[in-house]
Design a protein around this nucleic acid. Sequence first.
DNA 1: AATGAATGAGGATTCATTCAT
DNA 2: GATGAATGAATCCTCATTCAT
Lengths: 196, 196, 196, 196
Amino acid sequence: MTQKPLSDTRRPPSGGPKAAARNRAALIAAAREVYAENGLGAPLSAIARRAGVGQGVLYRHFPDRTAVATAVLEENVRQIEQAAKQNTDLAKVLGVLTWHLSESAAFISVLHADGTGSHSTVPMYALTLSQRVERALRMHLPEGHPLTAEPDDLMIAVGMVSGAVTGPTREHRERRALAAWRLLGVEVGPVRPFEE
Amino acid sequence: MTQKPLSDTRRPPSGGPKAAARNRAALIAAAREVYAENGLGAPLSAIARRAGVGQGVLYRHFPDRTAVATAVLEENVRQIEQAAKQNTDLAKVLGVLTWHLSESAAFISVLHADGTGSHSTVPMYALTLSQRVERALRMHLPEGHPLTAEPDDLMIAVGMVSGAVTGPTREHRERRALAAWRLLGVEVGPVRPFEE
Amino acid sequence: MTQKPLSDTRRPPSGGPKAAARNRAALIAAAREVYAENGLGAPLSAIARRAGVGQGVLYRHFPDRTAVATAVLEENVRQIEQAAKQNTDLAKVLGVLTWHLSESAAFISVLHADGTGSHSTVPMYALTLSQRVERALRMHLPEGHPLTAEPDDLMIAVGMVSGAVTGPTREHRERRALAAWRLLGVEVGPVRPFEE
Amino acid sequence: MTQKPLSDTRRPPSGGPKAAARNRAALIAAAREVYAENGLGAPLSAIARRAGVGQGVLYRHFPDRTAVATAVLEENVRQIEQAAKQNTDLAKVLGVLTWHLSESAAFISVLHADGTGSHSTVPMYALTLSQRVERALRMHLPEGHPLTAEPDDLMIAVGMVSGAVTGPTREHRERRALAAWRLLGVEVGPVRPFEE
DNA sequence: AATGAATGAGGATTCATTCAT
DNA sequence: GATGAATGAATCCTCATTCAT
């Protein structure tokens, strides 16, 4: 019925030299939210809008749709790696992992990225990420742990837990994730993001 | 508003009303393939093309994108239910379930359908389906089975296995599914479709 | 969600030889209703459905979209002509005309059919119809009537009244039609369909 | 779901933000022409093409089909309001109104917008517009004018004139509009667009 | 370095019309 | 004669991506 406001002739100032880093962070944060709400495949424009920047900025920082998703996941993985680096306690690391699984639906579906072609989004890279997650966990896998029987068991287990994680709210998803770990006979520490 | 008369390019024969049932089946089969290859969210036109019918036929049979996916999954679920009806052996039923999980990436991601986002892809109906799968399985769950500890354990377990199922080929996926069941301590019969 | 019933294999009987006339009448009646509710440009399939016949029957009776609309209007016009034939009283004839104007939005917009190309629907034929309406009225136009000043005045007046006829319900439209005639200084008899 | 990267065929330059205002104007002008030639309900793509812009631009400026029509009519109404503001002479204002009626078939059929059907074409908003037209005219309606008998008479009269306005060319339509005003006993000034 | 408008391909959806049965 | 399924063109609409400013 009515039209969008559209251009206002005014142009917001560029924001100075170090706005670039701030923008990048804002984009990743925005992407995480948007992905969580709408799934991967949400319009990129929505991410830019939520981040409060123009579309161009998004493209300056990320060459394509894949790169955005990748950057979001990178951070998740990095946090897990960090957690692994600072804790010798597997349970605590799994707590951080579980937090991420419960946090973002996108994170989950990317860990699933099989290469079946599913959406052809974020393709091979996700594999790399899963492997990094696995490596981070394996570091602390004690002898005789239930997931040491076969070499792939650890990765499969992570996939399994992510498969159990469904539900509308974070709490809902966390509860199911914990139930999944229980069914695997694996103990998990407190579920929370990694903090240095 | 009005539609101009169509161009004169020849029109292939319609095939007659008899074709209706055949077309519906063809569409479901085509959808299953396309979904397996490209995920839900594949262009509907691709399904119609693969089924060898016009776009309109697809819409005649299925009012919207959801209905197509639903129809495909219906059949999967029905087969599992059939298997449950004819077998008292849980392992055998799980074999059929596992076959479907390995067969179609779509089946998997719909069992995940949480409602988190993914703009309402195959929304509530998927819940019904998971529940039907669960009910079919629960019928045969013996006392003291590892999945009887908590009421949701069975459904969660199915989700977990589906979460483990990734990989480019059916064989690959089957191997992972079996590993997942093993990690859950659940025995599975031969992996194959239900046959009457 | 669910699919349409679709074919049922059963085939309703052809209806006998003289069903043809009944069908034609049903189609015209259905078209009148559908047009009144949805305007010209409603899907032809809606008309066939409302008439309770297949699409093919519609095409058997009416070669194209135009023919359907035409047939509906024909009947309106014929009734007005009939009314004119049986009454020497202009007011009574105008009452019948007004009834039709109030009855059907479609009738109105077709009397407007100017040839501007507007919808390119029901094109030239409408002219013929307006002319027939005019001729029917002119028969009874007494000397010195307000609409005798210029030759086109009568036709213009009919157009004017039809232009005034808007509103959601028949009653609403009738009220406005009568107001319009009043502004033209023309007396109108009771507003009702022609009955023999 | 996801969108494949666009083909490589060269992309014409965007024209920059400055073009936005120009484009909006071009779209409205194009819409006016297209509507006049083909009626409301003309393909939106035709409007975009005539305006020399991509489809997307049209959608950026106008969220839906309604908004386009609305914008065109807005301008018509605004001009009539302007004319009313600058003239105390009703006849002159009616001249401007008549010019618009003769100019555009679309303007006419929207003033008719009753809501009867025509699947909600330019729905409620048209009412607002008619009311604005009426208000603009009423300002100058002298005591004892033929259209002051009943409160709705003015609006009905405008509808009536618009109903009389048919014919293939502007001249044709103007002639009929003037005849309609004459039949109403209302004097009209020179028929021409408003110029400041 | 940022903005946000524009482009235009691609996918969704609707219907007029034909035709096997 | 009737039925209603199938066809497929045309239109709608959405976004990824580019680029003038």
